[in-house]
């Protein structure tokens, strides 16, 4: 298990939990790093508040990899612009592509995401596209140079869990890149299930941010992700299609 590393764009990570900093609070970041073991934290790129000296970067511990996202982008061009600005902020080459035309359900636009991935991968970015789990689109993302694929489990912020379970499984089985389940994971059991299926990592924000006890929930997620990963590496036991199979000896009964 100690050698079980998550490798993204040539960088090694031990933790398989990614924090979406979302409506960030210092408490959330602290809990995610300390109690959930997060080594990657996403950030948004926005107009600065020029009256405010404080900056989120002041609260992120050293050694944590920053993953800027392109949220707010509606087209590939807007996403590319945001990614370049993020890189100019001097915090590395990682970028999570998020392109949404739909503001009601916040569903990612796979086609624009593929276009942006192609442009940014050529510019040397480590591109992590957020996508609707579709095998054809995922294959296009691979060809476009994506470093990982980040399918949604259910709508952003919904905490509804693995609504797209079977389609994420197809991506895990067919795509030769880390599959990171992003959006919709609401509780540790769902994170554990995704990891048992062979997901490479889990990204979450709302599940922690809206929990009753943030540090305790962060630690529950850590354990669930670790348990799911171990189960996947161990290989799950088989499931019978019908009938039963005795687990006790079928001889030496106390009769006759």
């Amino acid at each position: 298990m100690n050698n079980d590393k998550l490798i993204i764009g040539g960088h090694e990570f031990h933790s398989r939990f990614i924090l979406g900093s979302g409506k960030y609070s210092l408490k959330l970041i602290e809990a995610a790093v300390k109690d959930a073991g997060a080594e990657i934290i996403t950030l948004a790129v926005r107009r600065a508040n020029t009256q405010e000296k404080e900056n989120i970067l002041d609260y992120i511990p050293k050694g944590v990899t920053l993953l800027p996202n392109t949220s707010g982008a509606r087209t590939a061009e807007e996403a590319v612009r945001i990614a370049r600005l993020a890189r100019a902020l001097g915090c590395g080459d990682f970028v999570k592509i998020e392109i949404m035309r739909d503001s009601k359900y916040l569903l990612p636009d796979n086609q624009e995401t593929i276009r942006a991935t192609e442009i940014l991968a050529k510019e040397g970015f480590v591109v992590m596209p957020y996508m609707y789990p579709d095998l054809n689109a995922a294959r296009d993302l691979v060809n476009a140079g994506a470093a990982t694929i980040m399918p949604l489990a259910s709508p952003i912020g919904s905490n509804k869990g693995l609504a797209t379970r079977d389609f994420i499984q197809i991506l895990i089985d067919e795509i030769d890149l880390p599959i990171i389940v992003d959006a919709g994971i609401g509780k540790p059991s769902q994170a554990c299930e995704a990891m048992e299926m062979g997901a490479a990592a889990i990204m979450a924000n709302t599940a922690l941010a809206t929990a009753g006890d943030l540090p305790m929930m962060s630690s529950a997620f850590r354990q669930a992700i670790e348990a799911g990963r171990k189960a996947y590496l161990a290989g799950l036991g088989r499931v019978l299609t019908r009938g039963a199979s005795a687990s006790d000896p079928l001889t030496g009964f106390l009769r006759d």
Partner: peptide, 10 residues
């Protein structure tokens, strides 16, 4: 002029 910085998000 656009002055841009990181915020919580994602």
């Amino acid at each position: 002029l656009e002055i841009i910085s990181f915020m919580g998000g994602g």
